[in-house]
């Protein structure tokens, strides 16, 4: 089976609101052009295209078909889509290359979260029989998980604020970040609750954005990149959708995916934790020690474009490898309420 590596990554600036359409075309066209400029490839060189996005977020049916316009899909292309974060689209593309059906793939994700009421739209991902009819908003539900950990002594509100402050400091060196700056946990804790026990800084911001990654197989990757980020482990697992029937203070599916992917010895990790307590929860579940740099990009607390944010974690982890700042990196993506479904991608430089 072919080896597969990340050879290119680009993202649109993470912003609170873009004037563009919900089909992402205005954000994707410049991202594709930057990727092609970086790799020297053109659209004809791409063997497989795969995207992640959501019609509920876009407020229109088949928004991902409208997004295909951004590609310029002529002559006809081989294309697929997942109604999930594009990290899972990358998984599909990885399988396509591994099985020899393509030599290169371009994976993209986009989300204009500002178009609707994000907290409310996220209720659509819950159990449609017993949970969605209550319209539980994503922030309120996250507060349930945060309090469980606080009351069990797994983290404190101060620990959570420290995660937010660290994210914003790290994001100072990320030109695409939405939130960055010098602040302290002490300052952040003076803010009122948004959904007790969560404050605004505990929640990833509402972000419009898009991102894309180019994958290539063995020799092609070596030809395109001086130091490709080789994918050496790639696994995803899911927990029950019944929130009350699983231990919300840990993430069994993350642990299982990490074990299968082989994360020992990672030097840097990009975690998809939309709430500060989930950052701590994931570090605990993955057993990441002090020696591991976590979220050098600032993570999703610095910008959280829905359906692209997980893919961006893989792009940011790959950037650490490709720049020679790490030899082994972990990227994590999540989907569903309270870290229900989790993906772990391990990248290595040689």
């Amino acid at each position: 089976m072919s080896e597969v590596a990340v050879v290119g990554f680009a993202q649109a600036p993470n912003v609170r609101r873009t004037p563009g359409t919900t089909n992402g075309v205005e954000m994707l066209v410049p991202v594709f052009h930057r990727l092609f400029a970086e790799t020297g490839l053109s659209k004809q060189d791409i063997g497989f295209w795969c995207s992640g996005s959501s019609d509920y977020l876009a407020g229109r049916a088949f928004s991902f078909i409208a997004a295909v316009d951004a590609i310029g899909a002529f002559p006809p292309i081989m294309e697929s889509h997942v109604e999930m974060d594009a990290a899972w689209a990358l998984y599909e593309a990885w399988v396509k290359i591994r099985t020899g059906e393509a030599e290169t793939a371009l994976v993209y994700g986009f989300g204009k979260s500002s178009a609707g009421e994000l907290r409310r739209i996220m209720a659509m991902q819950m159990d449609p029989y017993l949970v969605t009819p209550l319209w539980p908003d994503s922030v309120g539900v996250a507060g349930l998980q945060a309090r469980l950990g606080i009351e069990q002594g797994l983290w404190t509100e101060a620990d959570m604020a420290e995660v937010a402050a660290a994210s914003r400091r790290a994001a100072l060196s990320n030109p695409d970040a939405q939130l960055s700056g010098e602040t302290t946990a002490e300052e952040l804790l003076k803010q009122p609750y948004l959904a007790d026990p969560l404050r605004a800084h505990d929640c990833a911001p509402i972000t419009d954005g898009a991102a894309a990654i180019i994958l290539a197989s063995g020799d092609k990757a070596r030809e395109l990149s001086e130091r490709p980020a080789w994918i050496t482990g790639f696994e995803h697992r899911v927990d029950t959708p019944m929130l009350g029937a699983r231990d919300l203070t840990t993430s069994p599916s993350t642990i299982a995916a990490a074990k299968a992917a082989g994360v020992d010895g990672v030097q840097v990790a990009e975690l998809h934790a939309p709430f500060t307590h989930q950052d701590i929860l994931l570090r605990q579940a993955l057993g990441l020690g002090e020696e591991v740099r976590v979220n050098p990009s600032g993570g999703v607390l610095a910008g959280h474009p829905m359906f692209a944010a997980g893919l961006i974690r893989i792009g940011a982890a790959a950037a650490e490898i490709r720049a020679g700042r790490a030899d082994k990196a972990l990227a994590h993506a999540t989907s569903g309420p309270l870290l229900q479904q989790n993906l772990v991608c391990v990248l290595e430089g040689r």
Binding site: E117, R120, L144, L148, A195, D196, P197, L198
Partner: peptide, 11 residues
């Protein structure tokens, strides 16, 4: 078992 406060309910 656990709770969060929803100060401004949504539709």
């Amino acid at each position: 078992q656990t709770w969060s406060w929803n100060a401004q309910p949504l539709d």
